[in-house]
Design a protein around this nucleic acid. Structure first.
Lengths: 335, 335
DNA sequence: CTGTTAGCGCGTTCAA
DNA sequence: TTGAACGCGCTAACAG
């Protein structure tokens, strides 16, 4: 049972006080600020040597308790298994690391209960800040988050009833780009495939679609956990109506519908034009390659992280987090 | 600045001692074990009511410090943006949650330095256990991990110099399945595409490939961060040699090479047969659909989590973690 | 039976 | 350079 080495062990071994060890470990020596604690090079070296030898690792629990800082962030998203969120997760972790932070991750699977649970759980773990993708009907969880006074940034979606720090893609603009593209490719009868979820990323795209196409434009709505049958039904309907242009508003339904059409022997990109949202490898395997709206994932993660660190710093300095509610909007690009 | 509510606030507000609050919060009441602390229903209710009203959340830092348990796991993998690891990450988080654990995630990006850094960082955070995907040349990090005495389980890969708790896919068997499949589909001149990394998941597949095909069988090696040019080169070579069967040993190179072949106008599945490792949407868009080796991701995550919890429990009971070194091997299936 | 007092764990930090 | 209080929750020992 390798007992954990504590600051006390180091002090004893080096024959100094625990306070001195603490100072040395934190480089609180010779600081040119107010308090400069001077330690002789010799003892400093001795302490460091002992620490290294015993493989001393300060308990962050104790430090945390004392100074109230954990250097941990909480990231709540929909599903890390989805390449869209997995990629964002990766970039967020990267940014966090650059700032000396570690990250707790959680998946909501689009369940508001899970969202609330994760908020609570991460609050108990004393995360210093959150990056969250709220779920449909996630108001309760958001309330908790706001009430906690903990810094947070919302990404990918906004909830209509909350004006909070957010980093979002300009979905209306993205949809207009998608429509321009599909029209320039010759499509006349254009429909849209979306999720049956009240999630702003989807509804914003739908609204923009209707704005351009007119209020009677048709939009297919698929459930979050869609099956092959769901996608098949859309494909059947599309064929029946002789739709010749389809805008798919997200990764997963995009591929699902493509698969259904392909299985039915439809000549994709000949009989029907597709423009998708979010990258998928699949798009490359058609001629011409399927165009798609690419959201700037690295920037979303970067902006969100920077925003969050700004808020954390502001709070550290005693500022009022509650006043900051800006939304950062990023443009997507057509590929 | 919503000051955090502590156990003291509750005690004061409810007019009782902090100890009583603690007992109530932990349901340490009426336990039929040795110590049964009896509290009147009335005060119990009062305490719970106050706690609810003030939205009391116990500081896990304090609890952690006292009882040495954090209920946090550390998961270190290659790249959460890769659907393979993202999916595993998702399942691991799910399992952790079922056991009341929260998860710190980190990406190595196949860099041994990052691996070591993450091990150290998570150890400082006092995670109770690890699930890790070691990197090539990751011995240093593994040493740290072993030396720490902290429970851990290795997944996806094994390092030759360490015999440690592991959950792995039977890669040799998987390769044999892949070869049987591609042969039954008529391929004669079969080659393999792999990563140029000394990672057991790859080398095990390569060894098995050579075992069946003979020592002179050809294997293409692509770098981890492969470019279109890398994949193009493989495609060119494949065409030049009139290879008619290709086994691609992983997700990313699989799709990359397919893309290169497709761009060159090769009739995939006609002129050349492909059998891949790991699922990709892309496989569905060929006729016949491309066969692939599916690793049992949910089971890998599940077994790894259960294994880890067993180790954590064993350690909690004072057992010797160092003795446990079993490897759980799971079969992949051909799809 | 119902409840309280007090020390502990570990690193930080102020006063000496 | 050191002693000791501190943060917060847990729990053994003790009291009415």
């Amino acid at each position: 049972m390798p007992k954990n080495i504590t600051i006390k062990d180091i002090a004893q071994e080096a024959g100094v006080s625990i306070a001195l060890v603490s100072f040395v470990m934190n480089n609180r020596i010779g600081a040119d600020g107010k308090q400069k604690y001077r330690v002789s090079e010799a003892t400093k070296e001795r302490i460091l040597e002992v620490a290294r030898r015993l493989d001393y690792r300060p308990s962050s629990a104790a430090r945390m308790l004392r100074q109230g800082r954990t250097h941990v962030l909480g990231v709540i998203l929909s599903d890390m298994g989805n390449i869209f969120y997995g990629t964002i997760a990766h970039y967020l972790e990267k940014m966090a690391h650059l700032h000396g932070y570690t990250v707790l991750f959680g998946n909501t699977e689009e369940d508001p209960e899970q969202f609330s649970r994760l908020v609570r759980s991460f609050l108990e773990k004393d995360v210093e800040g959150f990056v969250v993708v709220p779920t449909q009907d996630g108001a309760a969880g958001m309330q908790q988050l706001i009430a906690s006074g903990r810094p947070f940034v919302v990404i990918d979606r906004h909830l209509p009833e909350f004006q909070v720090p957010s980093v979002l893609t300009d979905n209306a603009d993205a949809m207009r780009q998608a429509l321009r593209a599909i029209r320039s490719q010759g499509a006349q009868k254009i429909e849209m495939v979306s999720y049956a979820m009240r999630i702003s990323s989807m509804t914003d795209r739908e609204d923009s679609f209707r704005e351009v196409m007119g209020p009677h434009a048709h939009i297919y709505h698929l459930p979050f956990n869609l099956t092959d049958e769901d996608a098949d039904a859309v494909a059947d309907e599309v064929l029946r109506k002789e739709t010749d242009g389809l805008i798919t508003a997200s990764n997963v339904p995009s591929v699902a519908v493509l698969k259904a059409l392909f299985k039915k022997g439809v000549h994709i990109q000949q009989d029907i034009r597709i423009v998708g949202f979010d990258y998928s490898n699949v798009y490359n395997f058609f001629s011409p390659a399927i165009s798609y709206i690419l959201q700037p994932l690295p920037q979303i993660a970067q902006k969100a992280a920077e925003y969050l660190f700004r808020l954390i710093e502001l709070k550290e300095e005693g500022g009022d987090i509650g006043q900051v509610k800006e939304t950062i909007v990023l443009k997507a690009t057509l590929k």
